[in-house]
Protein backbone atom coordinates (compact mmCIF):
# COMPACT_ATOMS: atom_id res chain seq x y z
CA UNK A 1 0.00 0.00 0.00
CA UNK A 2 2.61 2.56 1.12
CA UNK A 3 6.35 2.26 0.60
CA UNK A 4 8.66 4.90 2.05
CA UNK A 5 12.07 4.69 0.45
CA UNK A 6 15.17 6.43 1.84
CA UNK A 7 13.02 9.39 2.86
CA UNK A 8 14.91 12.45 4.10
CA UNK A 9 13.62 15.85 5.23
CA UNK A 10 15.72 18.82 6.31
CA UNK A 11 14.76 22.09 7.97
CA UNK A 12 17.65 24.24 6.84
CA UNK A 13 20.73 22.57 8.29
CA UNK A 14 18.74 20.38 10.65
CA UNK A 15 18.13 16.88 9.35
CA UNK A 16 14.70 15.94 10.71
CA UNK A 17 14.44 12.65 8.85
CA UNK A 18 17.36 10.68 7.49
CA UNK A 19 16.91 7.97 4.85
CA UNK A 20 13.96 6.27 6.51
CA UNK A 21 12.59 3.09 4.92
CA UNK A 22 9.18 1.81 5.91
CA UNK A 23 6.41 -0.31 4.44
CA UNK A 24 2.76 -0.09 5.46
CA UNK A 25 0.31 -2.80 4.37
CA UNK A 26 -3.46 -2.60 4.02
CA UNK A 27 -3.96 -5.55 6.35
CA UNK A 28 -6.29 -3.90 8.83
CA UNK A 29 -3.55 -3.51 11.42
CA UNK A 30 -2.90 -0.24 13.20
CA UNK A 31 0.76 0.71 12.70
CA UNK A 32 2.14 2.86 15.52
CA UNK A 33 5.11 5.20 15.22
CA UNK A 34 6.80 6.15 18.49
CA UNK A 35 9.99 7.86 19.53
CA UNK A 36 11.30 10.65 21.75
CA UNK A 37 10.65 14.34 21.01
CA UNK A 38 12.43 15.44 17.84
CA UNK A 39 12.58 11.87 16.51
CA UNK A 40 10.88 12.95 13.25
CA UNK A 41 7.50 11.25 13.78
CA UNK A 42 5.31 14.16 12.69
CA UNK A 43 7.78 15.06 9.95
CA UNK A 44 7.39 11.54 8.60
CA UNK A 45 3.61 11.97 8.38
CA UNK A 46 4.00 15.44 6.85
CA UNK A 47 6.29 14.08 4.14
CA UNK A 48 4.01 11.14 3.39
CA UNK A 49 0.85 13.22 3.08
CA UNK A 50 2.46 16.01 1.05
CA UNK A 51 2.45 18.72 3.68
CA UNK A 52 6.23 18.91 3.54
CA UNK A 53 8.36 18.18 0.51
CA UNK A 54 11.12 15.61 1.15
CA UNK A 55 14.70 16.58 0.43
CA UNK A 56 15.48 13.02 -0.61
CA UNK A 57 13.94 9.62 -1.20
CA UNK A 58 10.48 8.71 -2.45
CA UNK A 59 6.95 7.97 -1.28
CA UNK A 60 5.19 5.21 -3.25
CA UNK A 61 1.47 4.71 -2.87
CA UNK A 62 -0.09 1.65 -4.48
CA UNK A 63 3.04 1.34 -6.60
CA UNK A 64 3.05 4.91 -7.88
CA UNK A 65 5.67 7.51 -6.96
CA UNK A 66 3.55 10.29 -5.41
CA UNK A 67 6.40 12.31 -3.88
CA UNK A 68 5.45 15.40 -5.89
CA UNK A 69 1.69 14.97 -5.90
CA UNK A 70 -0.46 17.64 -4.21
CA UNK A 71 -2.17 17.15 -0.87
CA UNK A 72 -5.62 17.37 -2.49
CA UNK A 73 -4.68 14.71 -5.08
CA UNK A 74 -3.53 12.34 -2.34
CA UNK A 75 -6.79 12.87 -0.43
CA UNK A 76 -8.90 12.24 -3.51
CA UNK A 77 -6.97 9.02 -4.08
CA UNK A 78 -7.64 7.58 -0.66
CA UNK A 79 -4.96 9.02 1.63
CA UNK A 80 -6.31 10.93 4.64
CA UNK A 81 -4.82 12.41 7.77
CA UNK A 82 -5.73 13.96 11.09
CA UNK A 83 -3.64 16.53 12.91
CA UNK A 84 -1.71 16.84 16.17
CA UNK A 85 -3.43 20.15 16.84
CA UNK A 86 -7.12 19.74 16.19
CA UNK A 87 -7.89 21.03 12.73
CA UNK A 88 -11.64 21.38 12.37
CA UNK A 89 -13.85 24.19 11.08
CA UNK A 90 -14.61 26.03 14.31
CA UNK A 91 -17.51 28.08 12.93
CA UNK A 92 -19.29 25.28 11.09
CA UNK A 93 -21.54 22.81 12.85
CA UNK A 94 -20.28 19.25 13.05
CA UNK A 95 -22.85 18.18 10.47
CA UNK A 96 -22.07 21.07 8.08
CA UNK A 97 -18.38 20.22 7.93
CA UNK A 98 -18.86 16.50 7.60
CA UNK A 99 -21.45 17.03 4.86
CA UNK A 100 -19.26 19.52 2.97
CA UNK A 101 -16.38 17.06 2.80
CA UNK A 102 -18.66 14.07 2.11
CA UNK A 103 -20.30 15.83 -0.83
CA UNK A 104 -16.94 16.72 -2.29
CA UNK A 105 -15.58 13.19 -1.95
CA UNK A 106 -18.86 11.63 -3.11
CA UNK A 107 -19.35 9.72 0.15
CA UNK A 108 -23.09 9.09 0.46
CA UNK A 109 -22.67 6.91 3.54
CA UNK A 110 -20.99 9.45 5.77
CA UNK A 111 -23.58 8.74 8.50
CA UNK A 112 -21.44 5.67 9.22
CA UNK A 113 -18.60 7.95 10.27
CA UNK A 114 -20.95 9.88 12.59
CA UNK A 115 -21.94 6.60 14.20
CA UNK A 116 -18.40 5.20 14.38
CA UNK A 117 -17.01 8.35 15.98
CA UNK A 118 -20.09 8.71 18.20
CA UNK A 119 -20.90 12.26 17.09
CA UNK A 120 -24.69 11.97 16.87
CA UNK A 121 -25.29 14.24 19.86
CA UNK A 122 -23.13 17.06 18.52
CA UNK A 123 -24.29 17.43 14.91
CA UNK A 124 -26.00 20.80 15.32
CA UNK A 125 -23.28 22.33 17.45
CA UNK A 126 -20.49 24.51 16.12
CA UNK A 127 -17.21 22.66 16.42
CA UNK A 128 -15.63 25.58 18.28
CA UNK A 129 -18.16 25.18 21.09
CA UNK A 130 -17.80 21.49 21.84
CA UNK A 131 -15.36 19.81 24.24
CA UNK A 132 -11.79 19.27 23.06
CA UNK A 133 -12.11 15.49 23.20
CA UNK A 134 -15.12 15.64 20.88
CA UNK A 135 -13.25 18.00 18.57
CA UNK A 136 -10.52 15.35 18.31
CA UNK A 137 -13.17 12.87 17.22
CA UNK A 138 -14.49 15.35 14.61
CA UNK A 139 -10.91 15.72 13.35
CA UNK A 140 -10.59 11.97 12.89
CA UNK A 141 -14.12 11.79 11.41
CA UNK A 142 -13.14 14.35 8.73
CA UNK A 143 -10.24 12.08 7.82
CA UNK A 144 -12.47 9.00 7.71
CA UNK A 145 -14.97 10.45 5.22
CA UNK A 146 -14.62 9.09 1.71
CA UNK A 147 -13.53 5.68 3.04
CA UNK A 148 -9.77 6.30 2.76
CA UNK A 149 -7.51 3.34 2.14
CA UNK A 150 -4.63 4.86 4.06
CA UNK A 151 -5.22 6.79 7.27
CA UNK A 152 -2.44 8.88 8.83
CA UNK A 153 -3.05 10.15 12.37
CA UNK A 154 -0.78 12.52 14.22
CA UNK A 155 -1.20 12.12 17.97
CA UNK A 156 -4.97 11.60 18.04
CA UNK A 157 -4.69 11.32 21.83
CA UNK A 158 -3.08 14.75 22.31
CA UNK A 159 -4.94 16.66 25.01
CA UNK A 160 -6.93 13.60 26.11
CA UNK A 161 -6.59 11.70 29.37
CA UNK A 162 -4.92 8.27 29.37
CA UNK A 163 -8.33 6.58 29.63
CA UNK A 164 -9.79 8.63 26.77
CA UNK A 165 -6.71 7.96 24.63
CA UNK A 166 -6.94 4.23 25.20
CA UNK A 167 -10.66 4.25 24.37
CA UNK A 168 -9.99 6.20 21.15
CA UNK A 169 -7.21 3.79 20.16
CA UNK A 170 -9.46 0.78 20.75
CA UNK A 171 -12.07 2.45 18.58
CA UNK A 172 -9.52 3.08 15.83
CA UNK A 173 -8.11 -0.45 16.05
CA UNK A 174 -11.58 -1.94 15.56
CA UNK A 175 -12.39 0.43 12.71
CA UNK A 176 -9.14 -0.23 10.84
CA UNK A 177 -9.64 -3.95 11.34
CA UNK A 178 -13.22 -3.87 10.07
CA UNK A 179 -12.38 -1.84 7.00
CA UNK A 180 -9.12 -3.68 6.24
CA UNK A 181 -7.38 -0.39 5.67
CA UNK A 182 -3.81 0.75 6.21
CA UNK A 183 -3.34 3.10 9.16
CA UNK A 184 -0.35 4.85 10.66
CA UNK A 185 -0.64 6.51 14.05
CA UNK A 186 2.01 8.70 15.65
CA UNK A 187 1.61 8.79 19.42
CA UNK A 188 3.42 9.70 22.63
CA UNK A 189 1.29 7.43 24.78
CA UNK A 190 3.35 4.23 24.52
CA UNK A 191 0.87 2.20 26.57
CA UNK A 192 -1.97 2.93 24.12
CA UNK A 193 0.27 2.10 21.16
CA UNK A 194 1.44 -1.20 22.64
CA UNK A 195 -2.12 -2.10 23.63
CA UNK A 196 -3.78 -1.41 20.26
CA UNK A 197 -1.19 -1.42 17.45
CA UNK A 198 -0.31 -4.64 15.68
CA UNK A 199 2.96 -3.22 14.46
CA UNK A 200 5.21 -0.51 15.86
CA UNK A 201 8.03 1.52 14.32
CA UNK A 202 10.50 3.43 16.48
CA UNK A 203 12.29 6.53 15.24
CA UNK A 204 15.19 8.22 17.00
CA UNK A 205 16.88 11.46 15.91
CA UNK A 206 15.34 11.17 12.46
CA UNK A 207 16.52 7.61 11.88
CA UNK A 208 14.63 4.35 11.71
CA UNK A 209 15.51 2.35 14.79
CA UNK A 210 13.25 -0.70 14.69
CA UNK A 211 9.96 -2.11 13.38
CA UNK A 212 8.13 -5.10 14.83
CA UNK A 213 5.28 -6.34 16.95
CA UNK A 214 4.81 -4.66 20.34
CA UNK A 215 6.49 -7.57 22.13
CA UNK A 216 9.47 -7.46 19.73
CA UNK A 217 9.82 -3.73 20.25
CA UNK A 218 9.63 -4.06 24.04
CA UNK A 219 12.44 -6.60 23.88
CA UNK A 220 14.63 -4.64 21.47
CA UNK A 221 17.70 -3.46 23.40
CA UNK A 222 18.35 -0.49 21.08
CA UNK A 223 14.80 0.75 21.63
CA UNK A 224 15.05 0.27 25.38
CA UNK A 225 18.32 2.17 25.45
CA UNK A 226 17.20 5.02 23.22
CA UNK A 227 13.59 5.51 24.25
CA UNK A 228 11.76 3.09 26.55
CA UNK A 229 14.38 2.83 29.29
CA UNK A 230 13.61 0.85 32.39
CA UNK A 231 9.85 1.61 32.07
CA UNK A 232 9.59 -1.07 29.36
Amino acid sequence: MLAIEKLSVSYGRVQALCEVDLEIRDDGVLHGVIGPNGAGKSTLLDAVCGRRRPTGGAVRYRGEDITRRSVAWRRRHGMARSFQRTSVFQNLTVLEQLRLVAQHLGDERFEDVIHVMDLGDYLDQKAGRIAYGVQRRVDVALALIGRPQLLLMDEPGAGLSAVETLRLFQHLRDLVGERKMAAVVVEHDVDAVFACCGKVTVLDLGRHLATGTPSEIRADRRVVAAYLGSAA
Binding site: A72, V101, L142
Partner: peptide
Protein backbone atom coordinates in the same frame (compact mmCIF):
# COMPACT_ATOMS: atom_id res chain seq x y z
CA UNK B 1 -11.48 29.39 8.15
CA UNK B 2 -9.11 26.49 7.67
CA UNK B 3 -7.41 26.29 4.30
CA UNK B 4 -5.10 23.46 5.28
CA UNK B 5 -7.96 21.23 6.41
CA UNK B 6 -9.74 21.96 3.12
CA UNK B 7 -6.69 20.84 1.15
CA UNK B 8 -6.44 17.74 3.32
CA UNK B 9 -10.12 17.11 2.59
CA UNK B 10 -9.32 16.96 -1.13
Amino acid sequence: ENEERMRFSG
